[in-house]
């Protein structure tokens, strides 16, 4: 299923309502579709275009700029190893080498069983806790090779399923609809647009 579900369409409409112009909701909606499907499908992009009054090319053009959007299936767990300067200084490449051996894939690829995708990523703002890793954008600090193995074991055994949601899910708390006031700002903008 690639188009947004009816529940997600309602969420999408709430999100769109919080911006003066619909296109501003595009990135949050791409995340929503990735949350639903695990990655951003072509059909999903067409659907978002319909919802926002854009062309599919508009959606694709924006989506492809951003690293977090995946256009083909990725593992259930996307493990991102930071190798930027602070982490490099404290053993990130040694860790990545270990991770590649442990998972049997090179950075940038997914294990055959579809469980893990390994990435060599840029700074994830945990520099004082180097080397830093994220699993589906949940942090692991000061990761040693032993800690990495433990992490993979725990993920495989489902021991972290509460803490680490499937790939695509970011915040598990959503902003609730804000009625009213922003409508005024939007109306002001509409007036400006009409001039």
């Amino acid at each position: 299923m690639s188009r947004l579900t009816s529940t997600n369409i309602s969420i999408a409409k709430e999100i769109i309502g919080r911006y003066p112009r619909p296109k501003s909701a595009l990135i949050p909606l791409l995340h929503l579709s990735q949350e639903q499907n695990g990655y951003v499908t072509t059909e999903a992009m067409s659907h978002l275009a319909e919802l926002l009054g854009l062309t599919p090319a508009d959606v694709y053009g924006t989506a492809t700029f951003y690293e977090m959007f995946k256009f083909e299936p990725v593992g259930q767990y996307c493990i991102s190893v930071c190798t930027n300067i602070s982490c490099q200084l404290l053993g990130a490449w040694e860790l990545l080498e270990h991770a590649e051996a442990r998972l049997g894939v090179k950075a940038g690829s997914t294990t055959d069983d579809g469980r893990f995708t390994l990435e060599d990523v840029e700074c994830i703002a945990a520099c004082t806790e180097a080397p830093a890793v994220q699993v589906n954008y949940r942090y692991r600090h000061c990761v040693t090779p032993a800690a990495f193995d433990q992490l993979v074991d725990d993920l495989s055994a489902g021991r972290l399923s509460e803490e680490v949601p499937p790939h695509g899910t970011l915040a598990r708390v959503r902003q609730r609809t804000t009625a009213g006031w922003s409508g005024t700002a939007t109306a002001q903008q509409a007036t400006v647009d009409a001039l």
Partner: peptide
Amino acid sequence: DITLTWGAGA
């Protein structure tokens, strides 16, 4: 109104 919005890696 405050709208919480977020990026996607850039």
